[in-house]
Design a protein around this nucleic acid. Structure first.
Lengths: 238, 238
DNA sequence: TCAAAAGTGTTCCTGTTACACCCATGT
DNA sequence: ACATGGGTGTAACAGGAACACTTTTGA
């Protein structure tokens, strides 16, 4: 479905005034990053609309899959963003002009939208972004240095970052951000990056191993100076 | 706005396909109760629609206030319910028949609706339910013995009950369910009711007092057999 | 004075904190 | 050999769990 089709016929297929946005979080170079798409001059979160005969959950997974190809991601509801003046008309106006397409005030996508925001944790190396019809580019940005984004998308990202901090204290899900095989020092550094504070290395390691979620692989990898760490991976559930 | 107005003109004022539902939780006779409204032959959660020029947050508070008169309730987002076949047409059909009103398939309220569910904790004695135009009655039901409800409203209540269990472990908000002055034994019993399990009385009391959130009132109340408990109330924030 | 209810204390145990110490490897 | 980084151990402490003890009241 190309841009013109979405504008003209989208209202027949999608629920109006309701959208889904994804904060897709990855980890690279000791930095938390999220996937953004360039639309016109600014950036947006990967998102989409809900089909009229489709559940919200299904739409969230479908949209994420369309942009990343991921089938079983760690996907979690973040929050509702529903300000009364949440309209993209100005942003779309610039986008249409840049594309040389006609723009009309009464396009359904110019309406006020309530969005359901989700966040997901992905391995950046195995995620292959697929820009959509509206997107001029797809890029990973440090969550601490975001470009100018449409409307409230900046604050959606900030909300996700805060939420992640709280969530890792309760549940072990961060391994989603690493390759399937990883070392404890890597996991340790990741947690420190998420929390933005130091964690006792010794205690962290024992705590992680004590969860019983990970199995140690006999292999060791050689690197530079010090001792070689073990690798771990998630235990398969029985 | 009466029923006929809502049906005929609601689509001009409200966002389509999106609703808000409230699980309003109170506590009475050692039981968690929630406020339900009778519409036709079955019961529904108090709810409503979002005005086109109104934020979602504002709508949630407005709707709650319309049905309870409460201005500053403990209000919390619960979850999105968005099954693909979430339509109330059959339920509305029965309701219209019972009221002797004409019913048409294409009424906007018969469309598929995604709902944003909230839960709130209120003091049952100071909450005065106000039935709306659609409602034949308003009643408090034990959350463990719900009547037959429209569509998925039963499971929304169940979700709220589960959520509450988790939330009280993290934050002290349960005092919202009690009068402004209460005793530790009362608070203790409330927590046991919410969790559905026994809590060590001694430890509970010390833990609550240790939070420093409550101030002890010198007064004591006389009752029956045993010793008279102190009363407590929430400390005013500085 | 006895049972019941409320307040306080004691003991045990677990998990957290902050280190110290021991291994392995590259320079 | 030594600095660096990874793995394990230990002592001090805080908080949770289970239960005993004391105080106050009505019958």
């Amino acid at each position: 479905m190309n841009v013109q089709d979405v504008i003209e016929h989208g209202a027949e297929y999608f629920l109006p005034n309701l959208s889904i946005d994804h904060v897709i979080i990855g980890y690279q170079d000791d930095t938390l990053k999220c996937l953004l798409l360039k639309v016109g001059d600014k950036w947006v979160l990967p998102g989409g609309y809900i089909l009229q005969e489709e559940s919200v959950d299904h739409a969230a997974e479908r949209i994420l899959m369309e942009r990343t190809g991921l089938k079983r991601p760690h996907l979690r509801f973040l929050s509702v963003f529903g300000n009364k003046d949440r309209k993209f008309d100005n942003d779309f106006k610039g986008f249409f002009k840049k594309r040389g397409l006609p723009w009309r005030e009464d396009y359904w996508i110019n309406d006020r939208f309530v969005t359901l925001a989700y966040y997901s944790l992905v391995n950046i190396d195995t995620t292959h972004p697929v820009p959509g019809e509206f997107d001029d580019a797809a890029e990973w940005f440090s969550m601490d240095e975001l470009p100018e984004m449409w409307l409230d998308h900046n604050s959606i990202v900030d909300t996700a970052r805060e939420r992640l901090k709280g969530d890792i204290a309760r549940e072990q899900v961060t391994y989603n951000l690493l390759p399937t095989e990883f070392t404890m020092p890597q996991l340790h550094q990741l947690h420190q990056t998420i929390l933005g504070s130091k964690l006792d290395r010794s205690r962290f390691q024992k705590k992680m191993i004590a969860t019983g979620m990970f199995e140690r692989l006999p292999q060791v990898v050689k690197e530079s100076p010090g001792r070689n760490p073990y690798q771990y991976r998630l235990k398969k559930e029985a």
